[in-house]
Design a protein around this nucleic acid. Structure first.
Lengths: 330, 330
DNA sequence: ATGAAAGCGCTAACAG
DNA sequence: CTGTTAGCGCTTTCAT
């Protein structure tokens, strides 16, 4: 099949450890031998076998990444940040999509470890069903989620603060009856966002009405359904805080096709500031956080853990979100 | 470190070839032994080492995927299709993003092959600078691109036809002066789209004006710039065919913020039908093609090639695009 | 049914 | 500076 180190050694009439040394820029080979080897390697198209190397060095220079959904542009942007940083550090990435399914996540975790990835970056499918993470035997980072304890590094955004800022802004602009159209129940980010939303309301002495706090998928469809539910509940609602921008798009869709004027009748605020939110046709008021950077830092942090021998440096990196005012709030 | 097949053999007092057989469901082990082994393996958390296995079996059950850009929702949707299918077939995916850069692509190609992926799916960074693909020693599929010859499988969309249909539709609706705001010069898809556009014009005896056929990035920014250029060129233009939906978004942006009425003054048509095009605020007329399916078929095709021994079944799968009429054309 | 042994392609001591 | 040797963890003959 493919040419090996032995083939090179044989055709050059030297030992294959010399070939190995030459190829790996190690000391202990004469300049002459090294050049011979390099020339021969190029000539016969030698490609080192990373598996064989990995087997003895016990590292693959590969990391595993598990995210719930790639079509969601939040995750694709974060993933791009991870990939960029991984590549810079000389790592390749095995990417898995869990579809928000804990069992798939478990399966992928298993596979990644059998493939002996050096580390893992993971956005859990369900932040409140995480016992299986204890089984992970390589360094790993929780991305925009929560493991339940501090025994591993987390890279995330201060979701509570973001939602607090956003809700407070709605209040300041005169909205009085604010509903929350949230995402998955199993999402820690979502839970934190609701927490921030509640905090802002309570601060103004506004009674919290759990009936206008809904959960659904992080999708346009989900947003549409929740808007329908909220706006037909008989409750008075003049603003909706959406669990993310995609949900907000669905809310906007339902509201505008049912005669609500945005932002007069109904204020809408999203979360994430995905790329499409700033389009002139959309102009969604939202909470920004650095997605590419989030991914990059997740990988950078993992890389640091991979470098330290033994001594695990667990840490939590939290990014501060920012309100972006556009046209869906008055 | 981690527990191996030998450890299990030792603690059970049997040979490790028996352990191997038991673990792999092979014949030649008594039921009793098999159960012993399985129990012990579970007990001590044995995880097979895929590298060691791969080294002897000469396959990794890993494929490599190289795409130019993950933030672009066309590619993230296609990639999701690939990932889904790969997972179904028991493959894991090493994902690389070339950033439309041929040198990065070469580097990734090298790395993937050193890691001994079983096969590769590739959207070339530049379809007209592809000599390095000859060096690939594993089965591979060109995705939505063109290698220059038929020596490998291609999975793609009939871009020429799509653009032909779209342009013809514009003509039928009374638009007479149609410009083309294209993407990268190195893109075969883009070239084919221009070909289809020209064919439709020529069919109606309309003179082709190369000055209103522009190239730029496949981005909103690119679309914005091209619209500006086209609409200030002094040429009479009443419609713009955009190289893809993202470009169309940029065209829409420039046009609407400069007083053009869509679709009366200016018709706009995109290509890809990305998710956001159907939002009520956007309602972009565009050409649809099945992105998830495209990815899925690419992986399915690769899988077939991986199964056939020796005899390479090279083929080209072409999907037929479809016009979706929305509100940016009259 | 089981064990012994060879070897996948490579690195890393250890001698010379 | 160079060669020899022993593995890395596993699969796979080949004997028994």
């Amino acid at each position: 099949m493919s040419v090996t180190i032995k083939d090179i050694a044989k055709s050059l009439g030297i030992s294959y450890s010399s070939v190995s040394r030459a190829l790996n820029n190690k000391s202990g080979v004469s300049k002459k031998t090294r050049e011979m080897v390099l020339a021969e390697a190029k000539k016969c198209g030698y490609q080192p076998n990373a598996m064989a190397r990995g087997l003895v060095k016990k590292q693959t220079h590969t990391i595993g990444v598990i995210i719930p959904d790639l079509a969601n542009s939040f995750f694709s942007e974060v993933t791009e940040g991870i990939l960029d940083s991984a590549s810079e550090h000389g790592y390749t990435t095995l990417l898995c999509v869990s579809n928000w399914n804990v069992d798939e996540e478990k399966k992928y975790l298993q596979t990644l470890q059998e493939k002996r990835v050096d580390g893992i970056i993971l956005k859990p499918a369900n932040d409140f069903d995480n016992k299986h993470l204890e089984q992970i035997t390589v360094p790993y980072i929780i991305l925009e989620g929560w493991k339940g304890d501090e025994n591993c590094s987390h890279v995330k955004v201060d979701n509570q603060k973001g939602a607090y800022i956003g809700t407070k802004y709605l209040l300041e602009r005169g909205y009085k009856h604010i509903a929350f159209a949230g995402g998955k129940k199993g999402s820690y980010s979502n839970a934190q966002r609701i927490k921030g939303y509640k905090a802002a309301l309570e601060e103004q002495g506004i009674l919290i009405d759990d009936q206008i706090i809904l959960y659904n998928d992080f999708t346009v469809q989900g947003g549409y359904e929740m808007a329908e539910q909220i706006l037909n509940s008989g409750k008075r609602v003049d603003a909706i805080f959406a669990g993310n921008d995609t949900i907000a798009l669905g809310v906007l869709d339902y509201a505008s096709s049912n005669g609500y004027n945005i932002p007069e009748d109904l204020g809408v605020i999203g979360y994430d500031d995905i790329f499409y939110s700033e389009l002139p046709q959309i102009q969604l008021t939202t909470i920004y956080h650095p997605k590419h950077t989030l991914g990059k830092y997740a990988m950078d942090t993992l890389f640091q853990e991979l470098c330290k021998e033994k001594e695990q440096v667990v840490k939590t990196i939290t990014f501060v979100p920012k309100l972006i005012v556009r046209k869906t709030t008055k």
